[in-house]
Design a protein around this nucleic acid. Structure first.
Lengths: 345, 345
DNA sequence: TTGAAAGCGCTACCAT
DNA sequence: ATGGTAGCGCTTTCAA
């Protein structure tokens, strides 16, 4: 004997399969009595609907795809947490794929989602290029249409593609301004992954912040990075080797900042007295670094939740508007007055 | 016009749908010539097979489910990374669900995977109770059978349930022994989530290590925790309040250890001189703590990879054997000779 | 080697 | 309000 199917129930109840189908989906045109009876019977018989069969006829799978660069990145994990919560609440499945920060794998990852006929997909923090658009085109119920795509922290125009992002410019700018208020003038920036949208925007924000605060831009103060722990130590070394090293540094993300903190400790530098450092993301760990990290908060779970909600709205044909949230600077112990500004205690 | 289907290709090629189906799946009984031609045509027409339709007839979805407590836990994220890589390589989709460390949500999470008819599922680090067995029973192609279930770091007997786990006893025991070699005698243990399999085993390993090294067990030295960052500070406070505080502490995982490190720094304690601390998991971050964390490594990605491979083997009817790996102590800077043992430098 | 046809479990349309 | 029927896109017998 197999799984109990709708026809089994019909037989047992002495009605037609159509009636059972209607009863099960609370169709209006069925008597309350019958409906209850059938629903009870179904439960009793341990009926579980076949999503697969349903999908075949309805044309949608009630499954969303989420493509990420790396779950191992705390920022990404938090966003996924929000996305999972939202999709579970909406009774959608969430198919997961990861590209290991490798643009070529990114296509393969997205492809497996598409192959499994996800109804829509959300992409977290990729360097998503136009490739998505071509991959997706022609997908979806109606021809010429494509399944909805929601980009997190990475806008990209296209039909049926939406984005939920942070005002990265503003965040970075806030951080620089705060450092300036603390008396810092030589402020460095450790950049994020090349080609990344938020990398670029945060860099712009940094530049803007420098300019707005009357600080002379110095290309030497901008060092490359990839948003990884390992980038912190490299960046610090570069910065320390400068003829005129910075007194403060803004990092692309908390991970890089944490790496930098570790390297600083190893080098005998005292944070924040010798160097103020600011991260970005406000990952849970940043409260537990030594010293606790000043950082720009991003509402990570909200980002994820919003992304899937937008995706589902688009699926339902409801109007969807791109969302852009603004972050908030969280001041903790890794920033301090520039030493020359410090008064005697 | 809709997605191109197998019949469209058949029409275009002037053959029957069956032939196309056979050509596409490299069926033996079809002429090479035709096969090539049809495959080429399919590619040209942008044909994408409907997994859904295929699933309906074959009875399997080529989708695995992964249920986790919390992706936000670096250990879990690393395991997922391995799982994703393996399932993608095997051309399986990976449906993701998370329980937020909440046993009641755990059922809901697993349920959504089941509803989407995953062919098998892997559960990462849950306090998986017998409930899984009852949920799963009756699932799967043949009645009385159930889909394969692979538990990571959490054994549990049952039909078609397998496990891949670490020798936690051994790992904890290694850590204690190492501390003893360093001269420590009062060694504390910060426990993990109650009801967790690895929590229990690591505690046993700690006890065993103490006994084997002739160290007097002291219940006061065992403090509760949940494997969270927040547990570190709480544990440290408890331990410091002891009449005879420990000189070393082994934590259930790196997260708790990191929290403890932070609290220690805040309290003006110097690690490792005032207190040696050992974590567990060897998450990437543990190399970047201050000081770098001595910890017991777990091959996290391997765990995940193995889990899905075992799942797929079971699906293929191949024999599957439970796997138990052994961890390795990684010595870094958070451990030191017990001060009384230190000679003059 | 190929084609015709049945059927996977369900929904939805058209009758009644 | 209910039943009959077609059909979603594919695989897989069974015949030819």
């Amino acid at each position: 004997m197999r799984q109990v199917s709708i026809t089994d129930i019909a037989q047992a109840a002495g009605v037609s399969p159509s009636t059972v189908s209607r009863a099960l989906q609370d169709h209006p045109r069925i008597s309350l009595e019958r409906r209850k009876a059938i629903q009870a019977l179904a439960r009793e018989m341990g009926y579980r609907p076949s999503q697969v069969a349903r999908s075949l006829v309805t044309g949608h799978t009630r499954t969303l795809g989420v493509a990420v660069t790396d779950v191992t990145d705390p920022f990404v994990a938090e966003v996924m947490k929000g996305a999972e919560a939202a999709s579970r609440k909406a009774d959608y499945g969430l198919l997961f794929a990861m590209s290991n920060r490798d643009p070529s794998q990114e296509v393969a990852a997205a492809q497996i989602l598409l192959d499994h006929q996800v109804d829509g997909m959300v992409v977290i923090s990729s360097r998503a290029n136009a490739r998505y658009n071509e991959m997706l085109s022609g997908r979806g119920p109606k021809h010429g249409s494509q399944i909805p795509l929601v980009l997190v922290n990475n806008a990209q125009p296209g039909p049926n593609v939406f984005s939920v992002r942070m005002d990265n410019r503003d965040g970075a700018c806030q951080a620089v301004t705060y450092l300036r208020e603390l008396g810092h003038r030589r402020i460095a920036f450790v950049a994020g992954p090349e080609g990344g949208c938020s990398s670029r925007e945060r860099l712009e924000g940094y530049r803007q912040g420098m300019a707005e605060n009357g600080l002379r831009p110095d290309l030497k103060l901008i060092v490359t990075g990839g948003g990884l722990l390992e980038d912190g130590p490299r960046a610090l070394r570069t910065l320390l080797d400068l003829a005129d090293p910075p007194t403060a540094v803004l990092c692309y993300n908390d991970l890089a900042a944490i790496g930098l903190l570790a390297a600083a400790a190893a080098a005998g530098l005292h944070i924040p007295d010798d160097l103020s450092v600011i991260g970005y993301d406000n990952i849970p760990l940043s409260r537990f670094t030594i010293p606790p990290l000043t950082t720009v908060d991003q509402p990570k779970e909200t980002l994820g939740r919003l992304a899937v909600m937008m995706c589902i709205c688009a699926l339902n044909g409801e109007p969807v508007k791109d969302a852009v949230l603004t972050g908030e600077l969280i001041v903790r112990g890794s920033t301090n007055l520039h030493s020359k500004e410090k008064g005697p205690t």
